[in-house]
Nucleic acid binder design. Structure first.
Lengths: 235, 235
DNA sequence: CCCCTATTGTGGTCAGACCATGAGGAGGTG
DNA sequence: CACCTCCTCATGGTCTGACCACAATAGGGG
């Protein structure tokens, strides 16, 4: 008796093999669902289960209709899948929030050390500067501010050059976003908090540009830990 | 026109909500697929797509048959989902292998610093010692040795107390396992390599127990970078 | 009392049908 | 000839119904 793999796994394995072998790559279109049915000898529902997994994991996007934009297309947007996975694991009590925060912290510290140790010519901090500038707008709502805050940290992570770190960090942040937004409204004096955050952000970037890894690491450490320790009011 | 969410997302959101609200937790059984169909007013195929996603992400396991062990049961085995996600992203060229290795390296270094800075009473290195002992067996095949190697590193990560770090590290390792096993056979003198690895492993644990974070970090750094730089022969 | 078997409920799979969508072509119209 | 409109068609999205394999359990037969 040969162990018959689940039908959807056949589809998943086939697509993964095509990806590994280079027969499929970013931008390419997968065969249509009905073609895969014919090629692999499985039912369409099994094909769809596999495609659904790939979609949620951020490997493909699907679109109805006709033409070159329709069908399932390989994209590689790691953050989406990472965020979904972490969020669900948190929901299922697989990951304590404290561990999520601690991991984000250690990744950010690494990013700071790395950036501050990189020669100026090899690091691109333009996006981070841009975001920082946008954040100086006093008229921002707290939600808008937080979105820019996320973009700022992500810009730094991307500047480190490590896509895995950047995606993981972003996923970690997104996974607890709901939790953060929930506590946001309970900060007594938001304007004061925003002012402190602005100062910290500038300080971090400054430390990086002064090529001081230890200072940059310390500042980002204080920044994150202080924020999560900021007193909240209410239930 | 109210934006009608995809049917499978309704199911996914519902289950996530149940998890967040605590109505579902590890060990609990999900309603049967046919019950979910009735409760949510969607087709069974849509329910199955959502469950498939949860399964691949390591949130549930499914079993056929009857009784308390059958059906979909919430487990939280983060590593499985993490490994699958990373492996697929690597396959889809979303993550360069170099970034995977670099990330694993920075996580391991953090684990070492953390362990070496933790009071002896609060860290449990028993499992790591056990694994190390098993690895001293000279009769091990290279595959067996590598499995123990993985267990050793995982044991240390778990001892750090951060589940997210442990799962991510394990996922990173598993995602490139095939690649590693592929190059394994091309190491000219495996016995010599194994001997070096044994020595390094003991050195790492020794540094931790001497409460020397810097030494532990340096040793794990050298250990991993040296291994990935070990010359391979052949095509 | 024990063992065997039929029942029942579960996930796993397939086949077929229908819908909404959107590109691209066919054909008409100025 | 240019433009616009409508039709066609392939796509994913969904639902329904059916059947299978499996495993626990209830119930009958020894």
């Amino acid at each position: 008796m040969t162990e018959q793999p689940r039908a959807w796994r056949i589809v998943l394995d086939r697509i993964e093999a095509d990806l590994v072998a280079g027969r499929l790559g970013p931008g390419d279109r997968l065969p249509s669902e009905r073609d895969l049915v014919a090629q692999l000898g499985v039912g369409r529902s099994s094909v769809r289960e596999a495609l659904r997994v790939l979609e949620v994991m951020g490997l493909i996007r699907t679109a109805t209709g006709s033409g070159p934009n329709a069908g399932a297309i390989v994209i590689s947007s790691p953050t989406g899948g990472m965020a979904a996975l972490l969020r669900l694991q948190v929901a299922a009590k697989g990951f304590p929030i404290a561990d999520i925060v601690a991991t984000r912290l250690l990744l950010e510290e690494w990013v700071m050390r790395t950036l501050a140790s990189t020669p100026d010519a090899e690091r691109d901090l333009a996006l981070a500067h841009e975001t920082l500038l946008a954040m100086d707008d006093q008229a921002l709502t707290s939600t808008e501010f937080l979105a820019l805050d996320a973009a700022y940290h992500l810009a730094l992570a991307k500047a480190s050059g490590n896509q895995v770190v950047a995606s993981t960090m972003e996923g970690l942040r997104t996974s607890i976003e709901e939790y953060v937004l929930d506590t946001l409204t309970r900060i007594p004096d938001w304007d004061a908090e925003a002012a402190v955050l602005r100062g910290e952000h500038h300080g971090i970037l400054e430390a990086i540009e002064k090529d001081d890894p230890a200072l940059a690491e310390r500042r980002v450490h204080d920044h994150i830990t202080r924020y999560y320790l900021t007193p909240r009011v209410g239930a």
